[in-house]
């Protein structure tokens, strides 16, 4: 029984949050990796793209709520999501037309693109703060829990409860759907295949009649959807704050690089690796250990390896270790 309690405590405090957080990171990292493989630069504006998409979704959610529309037990934000995606797509295409296209025509070095994306990052960050303000916004509504800790305890008779928030369930389901759709698109459709061809070998792709502007356009459309979905899921699960989204850049990049920049599977694996390490290393293990260990070995302290504020340090250390030992990432990405 103690072992079961330990397991439930572990799943409740480590497993469930890490899976949800990992899915959010994975979708974010997919966006970074797509930009990297097709447009060949690290997009520093990705965090703020997520913030922009989420902001539009929140605004539409508020509007729907004011009309009295709701989605039953599910958060209203899911209804508003398509609007957020559409707005972000428009913004991405606009940015590409006005900013990135010029440098593409010039065949500028990747580092110039990175610099330009810094400028875009500033502008988007400013735009988001301008419209919605720098403060914290919560916009999750509907049913709060799929299973609450109390119900779980009553159901199983265990001392430890297992709570799964609705948002966590939605995150995982959405992530599975999004990833399946993305892989179907990349592997089965004509446009997806031309995107992969373009990313593998630009010259050959051009030679076989692939229109580069079309590939770039589709990439931005997909990146916009991925960024918005990742942002909305993160915002539903935790809360929305422009600065937090900017800071998400670090774990997202860590996930993409650990998995191998340019590799979609790597991005997903990287997201979960980063999420699980962050959560396990900053979790206080006392509760789990008291169940498993015999009385005499009971821990005195919290058995927390690092305080939660060091979660950046965790993703970063993994990043450095991977870069030192396997510079192309776990799933052979590409190095330009």
């Amino acid at each position: 029984m103690d072992f079961l309690n330990a397991l439930v405590a572990f799943v409740n405090f480590v497993g469930v949050p890490a899976i949800a957080y990992g899915s959010q990171l994975a979708i974010g990292a997919l966006g970074v990796t797509l930009v990297y493989s097709v447009l060949r630069f690290s997009n520093f504006a990705h965090g703020d793209t997520m913030a922009f998409g989420t902001m539009i979704t929140i605004l539409v959610t508020w509007w729907l709520q004011s009309l009295g529309v709701s989605f039953g037990p599910l958060p209203t934000a899911l209804l508003a999501l398509p609007a957020g995606i559409a707005a972000t797509m428009a913004l991405m295409l606009f940015t590409d037309r006005t900013v990135y296209k010029f440098y593409r025509a010039q065949k500028a070095k990747p580092v110039v693109f990175v610099m330009v994306s810094l400028g875009v990052m500033f502008m988007m960050n400013g735009l988001v703060r301008f419209v919605i303000g720098p403060g914290d916004q919560r916009f999750a509504d509907g049913e709060r829990f799929l299973i609450s800790a109390r119900d779980f305890k009553a159901m199983t008779g265990l001392r430890e409860g297992l709570a799964i928030k609705t948002t966590q369930g939605i995150t995982v389901i959405t992530a599975v759907i999004v990833v399946a759709l993305l892989f179907w698109f990349l592997n089965k459709t004509r446009t997806g295949k031309s995107m992969r061809a373009y990313s593998d070998n630009e010259d050959l792709a051009l030679l076989s009649g692939i229109n580069p502007e079309r590939v770039v356009m589709y990439t931005w459309l997909i990146v916009a959807s991925l960024a918005t979905i990742a942002g909305v899921l993160y915002g539903l699960d935790k809360s929305f704050k422009p600065f937090t989204y900017f800071q998400l850049l670090l774990p997202i990049f860590a996930a993409a690089i650990v998995g191998g920049l340019g590799s979609p599977i790597g991005a997903i694996a990287g997201g979960f690796i980063i999420a699980f390490s962050e959560v396990t290393i900053t979790y206080a293990w006392k509760k789990v250990l008291t169940y498993v260990l015999p009385e005499s070995l009971k821990p005195d302290g919290l058995v927390q390896l690092l305080s939660t504020d060091y979660k950046f340090a965790v993703s970063f250390t993994i990043l450095v270790i991977v870069l030192l030992f396997k510079p192309t990432g776990l799933f052979k990405g590409k190095a330009v």
């Binding site: 630069f41 690290s42 990747p110 690089i257 950046f312 970063f316 870069l323």
Partner: peptide
């Protein structure tokens, strides 16, 4: 790019 991410972190 990697140096950038590393220093940012």
């Amino acid at each position: 790019d990697y140096l950038a991410i590393a220093t940012l972190g």
